[in-house]
Design a protein around this nucleic acid. Sequence first.
DNA 1: ACACCAACGTTGGTGACGCCAACGTAGCAG
DNA 2: CTGCTACGTTGGCGTCACCAACGTTGGTGT
Lengths: 150, 150
Amino acid sequence: MDPGTQPPARLRTTPSWLLTQTAAHAGRLVADGLGAVAARGYHYRLLAALHEGGPASQADLGRRCGIDRSDVVAALNELATRDLIRRDPDPDDRRRNVITLTPAGRRELHRMEQALDHVQTTLLAPLSGPERAELTRLLTALLDHHQQPR
Amino acid sequence: MDPGTQPPARLRTTPSWLLTQTAAHAGRLVADGLGAVAARGYHYRLLAALHEGGPASQADLGRRCGIDRSDVVAALNELATRDLIRRDPDPDDRRRNVITLTPAGRRELHRMEQALDHVQTTLLAPLSGPERAELTRLLTALLDHHQQPR
DNA sequence: ACACCAACGTTGGTGACGCCAACGTAGCAG
DNA sequence: CTGCTACGTTGGCGTCACCAACGTTGGTGT
């Protein structure tokens, strides 16, 4: 039909464009999947970090998840109103709060993971098993390299 | 030092997390690189599309770049005030504007590309040549697959 | 004991990106 | 002529990421 309705070739071969575009699609899928269980990325990251690392302070959670302290506050507020986490003052350090995953939070985390499993499937549909592993490896290498000065 | 300050393992092996995180880093690098020449992603995409495809309507540009019509308007306004593009009414279809790249716009596009070349280098630093090609191939496959219903 | 600095949680604001709804205008098909 | 579609424009919303500032608390140096 109408020619030139394709993305510019220079963009289509530029890794940064590819990354941001695929990430946009991935983000859309993730947002949809999490939205189906009334959650968003920050919620999942925080709950997953709590599940793996156990109770932690908000600052610790932020560092683990790569989320700014101020954004951790807001996300935890939302999780707390749904009773998915508990926020208790730390008796050993009165500056801190101890964030604890509640049973309901564990259940919600499980639902989120199911939704995300489905997202992975559809996202990686065009890739073979070895290709998925290779993609994971390459992205991990990029991430590790650029995350050293944290 | 303090253990458990690592991202959760489940996140670190999840492709969608890897994509969004690497994309966040890539986006940061791109934004910094383009910011050094007083531009942002939308500006680069639009100028690149104009350079490759020649003058076009705003709706066409939006389709080519994957940018919403309304966002095209704002970005073109910014480019127009810097005289990087011209916006003329289309005599053949009075609904449309014909967007044309000016010589100054071509120069700015060149500066942006230089900045982005540098970004690619630092972004892909940890990968070998074949690995970069493979990453590009995998991302392209993902993008093509998920862009069919456009 | 004191002053100093660092860390914590919190509030508020900014920007980029992506998306959607609505409007008036203009082209096109029936 | 009547609709339907496309176009440009305005305005708004949500997510993610980041920064500045404040008061409180902990730890350190002197």
